[in-house]
Nucleic acid binder design. Structure first.
Lengths: 177, 177, 177, 177
DNA sequence: GATGAATGAGAGTTCATTCAT
DNA sequence: TATGAATGAACTCTCATTCAT
């Protein structure tokens, strides 16, 4: 792929995130093209289907989150890592939209999502090893709570304060008694 | 409004719930009309806009949930009432669609939503009075968790088992230590 | 169906024949709508697919030809009937286009085409009974020659004279020695 | 023109015949490029327009047919030559597509078509000289029947048997009584 | 009031053609 | 010269909304 094509691909993905975040997955591909400053044909050359565009966007997001998780896991103590990641991701979701709207949709996110799941899995296990999270909590529930919280932070327009209060309840539920 | 008009209004609302629950908010108004056994014009006479139809549907839902909450509050012990309502509502959400998809959307649900909020508020206060829920938990967080869980039960297609496990964490977070 | 809807259906079919005759099956549905004096949505309400429109047009044509064949069969002597029909149909084709372009395409013309085939079959049998056409000629070949001639009259823009000369060769081939 | 450019031109023409034969004239130029193993730009450098590409292809076809006709004329007895050519060409058409679809379209085939016409003319005259074809038959009609039959063999998907039967009628019409 | 046909903007997608690399 | 990315008009089809019947 040529340099300019790569640049366009990136511009389109960025625009897609912007647009879909603002208006949900129903936003038009045309709008994405406009925002990216390319013609509509260019979008479809890179992503033959609107769905492909959404999927590519999700992959990027998942990859980004996975990287964040890995970084946190590598850095500090497990307890902080786990709860920080959870909090950060929800904070980010509060400013975005589709991001979360899609984190569970039928779109094929594929391997990238596995990576994210694995990364969160690591955070969880580490946290459990130091006794920061109950042992009977499984990754499935954590992912579920994660998605739900992110989704909520967005749709209900939770205020920063409400986000904190809601998460603190979830965190209390995850901690040993 | 004439008797048959009232009947039509009801038929349309019922059909709308059916259709939107099955296929999400993108389902066509035409399909609602078909399901209701009326012509498309009739739908638009009762609800001048598709959005109006969705809003009316949500009002009904909120009212129904509020009634459920009140019934539970009147019936048994506060602890059971509170957690049962929460669980039931999420279970219902798992089988429906729009219901939740809209529980936070920009649609003006209005007074009916206030009723629901009030009803849940009662459940919460009662539960707190008997020490089943921590005192520092506020209605806002409960609503937030409620919506998020309902949303999640739906989008991620949580299995019955996962729903139970996830809620049990949330409930643990709500209970006093 | 309401009276005006019926009128529109007819207008659309007429326009479709006009347009497709002029420009082949690749002409745009939009052009048909314009020519019919209706909005594009109206065309698609009557014929949910472009293919449906083409098929409906073909049905009409086949029905018309079948009627012609029946009339000729009922009227005069079998020899004249058979050769006149063949000639007339080719003459008509010379002024039309898709009409013929489609007389063998994969479009489902259905029962109407059977009718046409049956009607030509009658003409053929009658002509054979009076010894105007060789007995070993079968309907299949007649249909094949018919379609081919019609097609040719059109695509190659055969002049009236060339049409006559070409058909006279075909007719000679059909007659007993 | 450089050697590699010439080679590309040939590859493109070959690919074009393949592709258009398989899928009709609506096939995309992109597909031709792919099949030829060149980039789309290269196709357009050699043939500034899709139409030009089609025309060039037709020229090739006409030339090839003309060569076939000349070979047959040089080889054996005129009667066999004439009818064999006719039959062969129709047989070929049955397996191809655009080939015929275009044999009469508005594309400028030009001089090559004249060659083909001349070659068939020779076959015809020879056949008439030995009394295998009626004297009053003119080249125009022969070309007309030829095109029509080829077209038909294709569009109507005539079976091998039907092709034979249909041509036998045409041939009977061409022969003296 | 109810009907359902008509409207037309807009969506996703394709493809001949151009032009920077 | 070849490449292949970009363009944008055009196409089929959908659907909320209007309005004559």
């Amino acid at each position: 792929m040529r340099a300019d094509a790569l640049r366009n691909r990136a511009k389109i993905l960025a625009a897609a995130e912007e647009v879909f975040v603002e208006s949900g997955a129903d936003a038009s591909t045309e709008e994405v093209a406009r925002r990216a400053g390319v013609a509509i044909g260019t979008v479809f050359r890179h992503f033959p289907t609107k769905n492909d565009l959404l999927a590519a966007m999700m992959k990027e997001l998942a990859a980004r989150l996975a990287r964040d998780a890995e970084t946190l896991a590598a850095e500090g103590d497990p307890e902080t890592a786990f709860f920080t990641f959870f909090t950060q991701a929800v904070e980010q979701a509060a400013g975005r939209k589709t991001v979360v709207e899609l984190l569970g949709v039928d779109i094929e996110v594929g391997s990238q999502a596995q990576l994210l799941r694995a990364a969160i899995g690591t955070l969880l296990v580490n946290a459990q090893e130091v006794g920061a999270v109950r042992d009977d909590v499984r990754l499935d529930e954590v992912m579920a709570l994660f998605t739900a919280a992110a989704h909520g932070a967005l749709h209900a327009g939770w205020s920063r304060d409400l986000r904190a209060r809601t998460l603190s309840i979830v965190f209390a539920g995850l901690r040993p008694f």
